[in-house]
Design a protein around this nucleic acid. Structure first.
Lengths: 162, 162
DNA sequence: TTAAAATGGTTTGTATTGCAAATTATTAGT
DNA sequence: ACTAATAATTTGCAATACAAACCATTTTAA
């Protein structure tokens, strides 16, 4: 799109990446909130449903792990989903400590009509892009994940000046 | 990396994009939390500092707008930052309704040693990539922003089945 | 077999973000 | 002078999120 006389310095590119990421995160949050207003389900709640819909019944701990949440946090999410008639806690007969979280028909129906509830707009947008562009995006996101992953999510955390 | 005999279907690529995005968001959240534990500043708080550090003194409303937050939310963030000695509320002499939020020396020092506090790990990772790769990433993120932006952040919100 | 350790889920406590709606002080407009 | 409009705030509410303590139920080990 732009002539490459003097290439944009790397520093600048990185800066733009950061800003874009923040914007993306914010946009996803906002979308999540609009879904909440219109649907009564928050982002994490929808994500939980979606996850369960794809893995099948799960134990609470497993689901929490998948979502990188603390079990104690998960309890609250499950509580709210159960009270909304989207999920059921079943006792695992072989191990009575464990739950088997399963979706209700209502939730299944919802997921069926909304393949990716948490990010509907983005999904719709992606679907309109041609395949090669999506492939590029895919590649780029993998890079970010790798970069983040390489540093470790547990984040020994460092703060050295540059 | 993979032979392109049968190309990965677009549907699959989109799916991966979604997962990666979720992972990225989560990773940033986690990093933010680790910074909080080690530094006593949350993500939004650091972001606010950083923003102010780049724009100079701002009115509360303006800062809120920049961060896509409600002013009433911003008040809380500023409260906490002020009580941590990172920010000062100054009255604007020309318009006594307005504040002029300014960083303290302490905050300036912190920002100096941490150019991009909110996303330190990612930043460090990006800096290790070569320029062309960062450029690609940049391009990809722009695409996402555009896709999200085109749909509109206010999100008329739709949920039609596919 | 029985006591100790580990596991899965929960409760309690606390903090933050986040918005909406109502409120106050100040400024601008008529 | 009286009425908007504006900037910040307060109040009220809900969800996310984690840590730490706590049951119930296995599993392990003595």
């Amino acid at each position: 799109m732009s002539a490459i006389n003097r290439p944009v310095p790397k520093r600048q590119l990185i800066h733009e990446c950061m800003q874009d990421l923040r914007r993306i995160v914010k946009a996803l949050e906002n979308y999540s909130r609009s879904v909440e207003r219109n649907f009564g389900l928050t982002g994490p709640q929808l994500w939980a449903l979606w996850e369960l819909g794809h893995t099948g019944p799960q134990t609470l701990k497993a689901l929490a792990a998948r979502m990188h949440l603390d079990p104690s946090t998960m309890v609250g999410v499950v509580d709210r989903l159960e009270s909304k008639g989207m999920m059921v806690r079943n006792q695992d007969p072989t191990d009575r400590r464990r739950l088997s979280l399963t979706l209700t028909a209502k939730a299944e129906a919802l997921l069926h009509s909304a393949p990716h509830p948490a990010q509907g707009h983005l999904l719709a947008g992606l679907q309109r892009l041609d395949r090669s562009r999506v492939a590029l995006l895919n590649e780029a996101l993998h890079t970010i994940v790798r970069v983040l992953g390489a540093e470790g999510l547990e984040a020994p955390f460092f703060f050295s000046g540059k």
